[in-house]
Write a protein that binds this DNA or RNA. Structure first.
Length: 483
DNA sequence: TGGGGTTAT
DNA sequence: ATAACCC
């Protein structure tokens, strides 16, 4: 697959074949009513196929962009196209394009090792996430145009619940069009499609919508990616990665066991992270089958009922978690890692840098953060991942100044952050930090005034804001419940 | 290992 | 405030 050369064409020759094979399977079949639920055919639609309320089965798509940061960099600088490209953060190649992968570069590879493996590797710095973040939200917004229920996972993955959209398309579908229904992209496990099976039909329509989404991503944003269509998030995510770059795959329910059993270790199951995998290993559980067959009671005792029940369901391919619309972000944070920070003045200047960027971001967002947090990582030979944090409310007079250009909001916020800093770090003793991070969270839309407070009854009047910076107020409408 | 994010406890 | 998860 030549990324970006053939616009949104499926990769590999077998893609065409899949569609052809699917057609042949379809044509071999009958086109009559569903054997399980035969009913009168209504004019103008296939509503007879979909007994109301009886179908709890969902259609979910997982959309996963190909080496996202590298794609964004190649769009920013087209001269990079065709060359092996890595995106560097500090001394790590965090991601790279497929040219680089062919030459042996892996994600999260040390720059030294990467250059050794691939001396022609071109590196661009990707420590500033601004352009990646902006492109990421453009993708989410594009997907939200198809259906508003879009859940982000990191910057480069999205889940979309297509159930309703598929239902609508089926209602529009004429019965004579059913026999011509085809899959878009690969069918996992090369499974046979049964057009008498309403679940198959719905997933096929889902695959067509997924193809339209990828086409729109390419045409409108110049981005390629993979998609997986299945009946829940777990399976959609697992199946999206089966054919890799710029291809899509649909999973029919009869092949879901094949899919999850294809995982060689429980750690590969999304939802089972490093810690849980270690604890499972201690119990002698390493394969998906091990987890499926392990005593639920003992598992609950070891991991707690919540985790135990959830991951054991995952091991069967069951995942009833909804696609939760992400909406605007819950928090904004900026972090910087370094070899060593051991003085307060050094920390202060780094904190100022982080905060300045954050204020720009939060200003563009429009909402106001009500909480500020400082996060540090202390140097230590072992236990590298652990962080400490302190947070506090942002004083209301500071919140009000946010977004008003000429007011100095930096000074009071840096003062707060340094108080949090000294609360965590005894600056009279030697210290060694390897990371500083500032987070603005508890975001609220403007003026979320609470009942019973003055602000609830008074609203700022933009038109009468005086030159002196004082604000004038007018009474809000009151309601009976106010009293 | 980087520079982000989320939810649960 | 931390710990787990995700990318």
């Amino acid at each position: 697959e030549q990324l970006g050369v053939e616009p949104a064409e499926e990769a590999g020759g077998d893609e065409e074949e899949d569609a052809v094979q699917a057609m042949e399977r379809v044509e071999a079949g009958e086109t009559g009513g569903s054997p399980g639920a035969p009913g009168p055919e209504e004019p103008g639609g296939l509503t007879w196929l979909v007994p109301e309320g009886s179908s709890s089965s969902r259609v979910i798509v997982h959309v996963d962009l190909d080496c996202f940061y590298a794609q964004v960099e190649m769009i920013s600088n087209p001269e990079l196209k065709g060359k092996p490209l890595g995106v560097q953060q500090k001394y790590l190649v965090v991601t790279c394009n497929y040219e680089a992968r062919k030459l042996g570069v892996k994600k999260l590879m040390n720059v030294r090792d990467a250059k050794e493996k691939c001396p022609q590797l071109v590196l661009v710095n990707g420590e500033d996430l601004t352009r990646y973040r902006e492109m990421s939200y453009k993708v989410t917004e594009l997907l939200e145009e198809f259906s508003p229920v879009v859940e982000r996972l990191g910057f480069d993955e999205n889940f979309v619940d297509l159930t309703e959209m598929v239902e609508k398309r089926l209602q529009q579908l004429q019965s004579d069009e059913l026999s011509a229904l085809t899959v878009s992209g690969h069918v996992y496990n090369n499974q046979y499609i049964n057009l008498h099976d309403i679940v198959h039909i719905r997933l096929l329509v889902g695959s067509q919508i997924a193809a339209e989404m990828r086409e729109a991503m390419y045409n409108q944003l110049g981005l390629t990616g993979c998609a997986g269509v299945a009946s829940n998030k777990l399976l959609a995510k697992l199946v999206s990665g089966v054919f890799k770059p710029n291809q899509q795959t649909v999973l029919l329910p009869e092949s879901s066991q094949v899919l999850i059993q294809s995982l060689s270790h429980v750690k590969e199951m999304p939802g089972i992270g490093y810690k849980t995998a270690k604890r499972l290993e201690a119990l002698g559980i390493s394969s998906v089958l091990d987890l499926q067959t392990f005593s639920p009671k003992i598992l609950e005792k070891e991991l707690g009922i919540s985790v135990a029940q959830r991951i054991q369901k995952l091991s069967f391919g069951e995942d009833n978690s909804p696609v939760t619309p992400s909406g605007p972000p819950q928090s904004f944070s900026e972090e910087d890692s370094f070899k060593k920070c051991s003085s307060e003045v050094e920390a202060k200047s780094k904190i100022e840098e982080l905060l300045a960027s954050l204020l720009n971001r939060v200003c563009q967002d429009g909402r106001k953060p009500h909480t500020i947090r400082l996060i540090i990582r202390r140097y230590s030979s072992e236990n590298h991942c652990s962080r400490e944090s302190r947070q506090c409310p942002i004083p209301s007079h500071v919140i009000q100044k946010l977004g008003t250009g000429n007011c100095d909001v930096m000074t009071p916020m840096v003062d707060i952050l340094m108080k949090l800093f000294r609360n965590m770090v005894n600056v009279k003793m030697p210290f060694h930090l390897t990371l500083l991070s500032v987070c603005l969270c508890n975001l609220k839309a403007l003026n979320t005034a609470k009942k019973g407070t003055i602000d609830y009854y008074l609203t700022p009047s933009l038109s009468t804001t005086s030159r002196s910076g004082k604000r004038s107020f007018k009474m809000k409408d009151t309601h009976m419940e106010d009293f």
